[in-house]
Design a protein around this nucleic acid. Structure first.
Lengths: 221, 221
DNA sequence: ACGATTAAAATAAACGATTTATATTTACAG
DNA sequence: CTGTAAATATAAATCGTTTATTTTAATCGT
């Protein structure tokens, strides 16, 4: 850090880095984020860290208590269910609109990113334990974004993007049991429904897809 | 300003003041918000103004261009339609849930705030022209919040709150023609549907209600 | 020994000045 | 004149420090 690159600002870079660190599970949920310490770590002034934390706080990834500083968002099964419910509502609608408005270029992009996703390993080994690959996470996000990319309502898309980040926060949780689901098949089925312009089927598959993610995490049958 | 009051911070107060000023139409849409000028006006340092603007920027009320500072959000009919669409989706769902989960206390609160709303004048005279009363605006917001207050999903409620602020941005626009609608009757009908726990009817009335607001603003038949 | 009160340390929030980037003006060459 | 480049002006971004608040530690009295 410590230097501005390109036309972007230091605050922007620190915000991005902090966000990806939090989403990658670098910090324990609920743990305090001391401005001065982070500033030392990033080799920037307290002002830019403060600005970054302020942004993340309004995004919901960081908690801000007046005169008590910042801390990482806490996690709960209840909240994940609320996020999933909101995502289900908004992303389903965005998906419908995307299917209704998407053109040939969009179709091609969907196929392209799905191919990439299907050829990327979801887990990698990190000191004898399986962990979600950061690369896969990124492509997975791209895939879901692409599905709704043809939705002509930017407000709706922004909501979807924020909700994705919030649910991403839960992805790096220790999974209680081995995944039994077939994520690859689900993605394939979802893409097929989308490409055949079958909104109802696509939404149905999508809803089941994200519900399974939540259930898997907290070990619900 | 210039002094911290209570347990809240200066930034918080400036944020609130700036937000209400913007929503009240104090600044022209698209006009630049110079940090140093605002700091002088509020008699605070540039840091707190910056923090306030950063917050409002992530909320969407303010635009931030890296190295070009901040400006008031621009307005367009298209964007209002997008906001209304998103509001319709989320607030309808919140309304359904609220109707499903609301208890007797909630019912009473709905009735109470509706009474207040029905007894408050929507317009007041400002140098020979009619303008929306700030007091009415506030109670109107409270009324709509109360309708969905029993929704048990805070994530959904937060989305609704943000979308409300965004659409509120358009409320202070010069209305091209005299309002012909009967807002009072709409609110009464909405409340009646809610209290009789008729979700479908309530949602239908609500959707028509916010659609009319948008149509009225841009003079659509 | 324990709880309340006060002093000390740590951290958050705010400040004002400096540095860096962008926009504007002026000078100059073609 | 017109286009380009240097110089200046303006505003944004960042910095290091100061002030206020909270938390921890210590002291005192009962």
């Amino acid at each position: 850090m410590a230097k501005r690159n390109g036309s972007s600002t230091l605050s922007e870079n620190v915000t991005k880095k902090l966000q990806s660190d939090i989403l990658a599970g670098q910090y324990e949920p609920g743990s305090p984020l001391t401005v001065s310490e982070l500033a030392k770590g990033f080799e920037v002034s307290v002002a830019v860290v403060r600005e970054a934390l302020t942004r993340l706080a309004t995004h919901g990834l960081v908690l801000q208590n007046p005169n008590h500083g910042f801390s990482v968002k806490t996690a709960s099964e209840e909240e994940l269910n609320n996020i999933i419910q909101a995502r289900s509502l908004n992303e389903s609608e965005a998906l419908r609109l995307s299917i209704a408005y998407g053109d040939l270029t969009w179709e091609s992009n969907v196929i392209a990113v799905h191919h990439k996703l299907s050829q990327t390993a979801e887990y990698r080994e990190v000191n004898q334990k399986l962990a979600v690959s950061e690369e896969w996470s990124d492509i997975h996000r791209q895939f879901h974004y692409e599905l709704i990319a043809a939705c002509p309502n930017p407000v709706l898309l922004d909501i979807c993007r924020r909700l994705w980040d919030l649910s991403e926060f839960y992805r790096h949780y220790p999974t209680p049991h081995q995944q039994t689901r077939d994520g690859r098949a689900e993605h394939k089925a979802l893409m097929d429904a989308v490409l055949s312009r079958d909104s109802d089927r696509a939404v149905k598959i999508f809803r089941a897809h994200i519900q399974l993610t939540a259930d898997n995490l907290f070990n619900n049958p």
